[in-house]
Simulated assay, not measured.
Amino acid sequence: MTTIQRQHFGEHQGQAVSLFTLTNVNGMRLCVTDYGCIITQLWVPDRHGQTEDIVLGFDELASYQAGHPFFGAIAGRCANRIAGGRFSIDGDEHILATNELTTGQHLHGGLRGFDKYIWQAQPDGDGIIFSRTSADGEEGYPGNLRVCHRIGLTENNVMTLSFSAETDKPTLVNLVNHSYYNLLGHTHLIHNQQLKIEADFITPVDEVTMLPTGEIRRVAGTAFDFRNARRLGDAMLHRPAQDFDMNYVLKPGQGELHPAATLICPQSGRVMEVHTSLPGVQFYNAFKLSNKVWNGKAGHRYQAFSGLCLETQAFPDSIHHAHFGNVVLRPGEKYHSRTEHRFSTVA
């Protein structure tokens, strides 16, 4: 069975911060802290049974507190971008921080999003339930939002990410885990890994604001076509700055979960299959990491293409595009989503 250990990880604003280590029978190991629900380590066996840490991050709490590009963290109350930091519900306008300086948009919950709080933490079988109440008006969002985020590790090498939330006023909710993955290990680059995304369409963006135009466009004949597994280094040659930061419209499936993406590392044999209840996945290949110096675990410097994100989500800026789907949560309703990362190996 999965075991859970808890240790002191530091302090934040006078409160103790904990690090939880979940280990299953196969030696797979997941470390997560109650500061920002951040996944700090994920040790996964290769085809020979040797484990490697496959997520980007830091060894110490101080580096997370100093600011980072959401390594392993929760993004919320509403992940991704909101145009101009403004939205209206039932005729009431709400103003948010425009905290993404390069685009002038609201991003991932604002100046102090969910990633910058200590959460209540309770072990729960093969996982941890993290919970907190986001107060009415926090970062400009209406309503007291009660949030639970369960992170688990099963005996058959599945990492589970579940979110639930309830509110006392109409508000926006789009909760995301923002881990950066590299199946060869966090000290390598992603070029030789292969990616498949279960999507025929994307929601293209304006290249300056990075906001969706509202169009839903076919991937066929474009650089964004990952309907069949492609070597990432080859795909990146078809983008002007080797850049990918795009929401994919996932094919609907049967039951609660449908396939979102598969990442394959031929060198190690590791495979990660992502399944989700959500309608979209944001593929970001970390092309911006070289814009700043990020000295990560064991002092390794993370540069562009050191990892990739597969953020299962509602579509970006959905509040301004009715055909994108509903991201408004109302009193009496319950938000729920689930994503699984299923790990295996190939010969």
Rank of each mutant, 00 (worst) to 15 (best):
H275A: 09
I82Y: 04
E60P: 11
R270V: 04
V346T: 12
A79G: 12
L310P: 13
F226N: 00
T2H: 01
V271T: 05
L184S: 03
G137T: 02
V147Y: 09
Q105W: 08
N80H: 12
L257R: 06
T276H: 13
D168N: 15
G325S: 12
Q303R: 15
R47Y: 13
L183C: 06
G299R: 03
F343R: 06
L30A: 03
N174A: 11
L329V: 05
T3H: 06
G113W: 14
D53A: 02
D206E: 05
V327N: 10
W43T: 10
G84L: 03
E311R: 08
R230S: 04
R330K: 07
V158K: 04
T103N: 02
T160K: 12
G325C: 11
R231H: 00
T312D: 14
E311Y: 12
D168F: 12
Y181F: 07
V147E: 07
S134R: 08
G280K: 07
H149I: 09
T222G: 03
V173N: 09
V327D: 10
A79E: 07
N182A: 01
F71A: 05
D136E: 06
P266G: 02
R112W: 15
L211R: 00
Y64K: 14
D168V: 13
T98S: 11
Q194H: 14
Q122C: 08
L183Q: 01
I89M: 01
V249F: 11
L278M: 12
Q303K: 15
M210T: 11
D206T: 03
Y302P: 10
F9C: 00
P331I: 02
S277A: 06
S344Y: 04
K196E: 03
A235R: 01
S134K: 07
D243I: 00
T345F: 12
P170T: 14
R47C: 09
A199N: 04
W43R: 08
I202S: 01
N182E: 00
G104V: 05
P259V: 07
F244M: 03
A199P: 02
T2W: 02
C78H: 08
T345N: 12
G152Q: 03
Q41C: 05
A322V: 10
K334L: 08
L101Y: 15
Q303G: 14
H68V: 07
K297Y: 08
E155C: 09
G269C: 04
G14A: 13
A199H: 05
T154K: 08
G14Y: 13
T2L: 02
F58G: 00
P331A: 02
L172I: 15
T187C: 00
N326M: 04
Q5K: 07
R29Q: 07
V281P: 09
A135Y: 08
Q193H: 01
G72R: 05
R227P: 00
N157C: 11
R230E: 01
V176M: 13
F305W: 04
T160N: 12
I95K: 14
